[in-house]
Design a protein around this nucleic acid. Structure first.
Lengths: 356, 356
DNA sequence: GATGGAAATGTAAGCGCTTACAAAATTTCA
DNA sequence: TGAAATTTTGTAAGCGCTTACATTTCCATC
């Protein structure tokens, strides 16, 4: 039996009406404090415009009634929500979570609220989420990466919505960004790998489509090879989805076909962790038999054994600075140039000399 | 130079007004389709009430103008947002993410949207988030665990907001829940540990305050000891915050004071992973020198070495069922009894026979 | 072809706020 | 002391929708 008679209810409307002991409105507060609704509104939004005596009386009434403003009504009237939307590719893994945490904290300091949506790395869903966030009244948006249809940017601009791109730094791009140079960072890592004598390389990359970070990272590897005059054939590239298992499968595949690489550079730590587990399962020693590297420096990379050599990304700095800039934009501060933040190589245990 | 003259802007209002090429409203659509706003509204919300010919004309106008409804205005007028709020303790680790994913998917199937907030495991912040979500018009709420001030429940009930507790199953609690029996699950694990001959035990638990899951899990361990007639002194308990490092620190502490336990049961996988890394750092073999267990079965538990013995929690089933019930509540279906979902022991490598 | 009832559409009153603008109260200062 | 300037408060018009109710249109029936 899954019914519970002491709690049965009428259909929605009846239920709501019956139980809603009239949530107090501005007008209730106004009546109680014997002022106009305008004054109450001012007490809440621009307290300096109200003389102390009145203000006290009003706030007293607010407390007594347990009043809290109706966000939707406020947004409708003010045409402003003090909300900033962010669309990230995924919530499942924590890469974006930390940056977003800092973003939110900084927003909070300026009286703004964060609304998050995730696109599952899908361009069409991202567009939908953008529309949803704007429908909900987001005053500005935070976007990850530059790569999206031109129409999206046009839409945003037509609407006059301030937005900022993050997680990348690309001064050649058309829009302002706060991030790091994925290509240069990966190139630096790849150079380090090559300096260990590796010359037959594999790259396991995230899906490149609609993902400029993934593409830039791959280009970084190519840059490094080129600098050393290694032919492009020395790099084998595999593309796969963002999951530990995918990394493992890709690793198996890469190691099963000649020429077998001595180093496998992964587009992110999640793939790299998958590669590490697959290598161990195959009885390979890391880094004696094969070197593996990641990118992002998520928590996992220090837990996995051996610890992952990777690139540390300035999550928090990005989040904080992005928040500041977005708030500035909403306050009418002139736009700034894109900001480049630094990455760090984290040389840990999965990178070693080439066995050949 | 961080200014960019081709993008400089007037202060906010000017900027918005200047750039806002009049976002189309219902009225614009109505005019274009030569019907009343009511008809347009009906086309969007209750299309069966509109005859095909008109509907087509209206939808055509919608498309041509690129109209999308103003969520806030809609919420204000309809007193309903089709939004359900969820407050989870943390976004940083993925435990709740997967359950929430399923929750969201199921909500989507019923035309509802999810709004997430996180409380950082703090009761005061949770209250604030509840208020925020309700201000934003959430029609119903998903809450984690039963343990919160009575006043919160009273507030929710006075407001007539349907809500559901999850991540726990406790038929003795006052409110409906969809979850699993934390105490019984941990007891089962602890029994298994004891069956391996361990008798000097330590528990590293999450902060117990405002966290009935943490308390229930600890009680589960005590239950198991009691069943075996082991005295309570054989269990040493350490409480610490939710982080890998905290788990590591707690482990070091527990192993540095006699009597030294042969098994360390952790309240969750994050703490357990910390314990595992600390053990390895201290040169202890797992499970030869010490056994360690977790709870939750997050992805990490299969990555860490040795793989973690833990309790698998039915994230997705909880999310899906919780969504269904909440939607039902909003549709006026009579309340149901709490639902108990099953957990599974995942016996992996960190649990072995007692060395003594 | 008139009639009644159902189906489709329109009219207009809000929903709970913010904010121009107007009015009243208070302060300033000649 | 009183007019002007300033501060404080009030009035009321929306913001963009939904929906109860009124009206019109349509169609089946006699």
């Amino acid at each position: 039996m899954d019914q519970d008679s002491n709690r049965d209810r009428a259909p929605l409307k009846g239920a709501l009406k019956a139980r809603d002991t009239h949530r107090p409105t501005l007008e209730d507060v106004a009546r109680r404090a014997r002022v106009s609704t305008a004054t109450v509104s001012r007490c809440l939004n621009t307290p300096d415009l109200v003389v102390e005596r009145t203000r006290k009386r009003v706030l007293e009434a607010v407390r007594e009634l347990g009043y809290s403003p109706n966000f939707n009504a406020r947004a409708l009237a003010a045409k402003r929500t003090n909300t900033i939307g962010a669309i990230i590719p995924t919530m499942e893994n924590a890469i974006f979570a930390r940056g977003l945490q800092a973003f939110q904290e900084e927003l909070g300091r300026h009286g703004f609220t964060l609304l998050v949506a995730s696109s599952s790395y899908r361009a069409d869903l991202e567009e939908e989420q953008i529309r949803t966030l704007l429908m909900r009244g987001a005053d500005a948006l935070l976007l990850i990466g530059h790569d999206r249809p031109k129409a999206v940017y046009e839409f945003l601009e037509r609407r006059g919505v301030p937005f900022l791109v993050t997680w990348v730094y690309d001064p050649s791009a058309e829009h302002q960004s706060v991030g790091f140079d994925n290509r240069a960072a990966m190139k630096e890592l790849a150079q380090k790998v090559l300096s260990f004598g590796h010359s037959t390389i594999a790259a396991i990359t995230a899906v490149q489509d609609s993902n400029d970070r993934a593409r830039a990272r791959l280009e970084g590897i190519r840059d490094a090879l080129r600098d050393r005059d290694l032919p492009p054939e020395n790099l084998r590239v595999l593309e796969t989805t963002y999951a530990i298992k995918s990394g493992a499968a890709a690793f198996d595949q890469v190691m099963s076909k000649s020429p077998i690489p001595t180093a496998v550079l992964c587009g992110n730590d999640v793939l790299a962790v998958g590669a590490v587990t697959a290598a161990k399962a195959a009885g390979l020693r890391i880094p004696e038999d094969v070197s593996i590297t990641g990118f992002d420096d998520i928590e996992l990379s220090e837990i996995v054994e051996p610890q992952l050599t990777t690139v540390h990304v300035p999550h928090r700095a990005m989040g904080t600075e992005a928040a500041r800039r977005l708030v500035d934009m909403l306050n009418g501060t002139p736009a700034k140039d894109s900001l480049r933040l630094d990455t760090d190589l984290r040389l840990r245990r999965t990178l070693g000399p080439s066995p050949r």
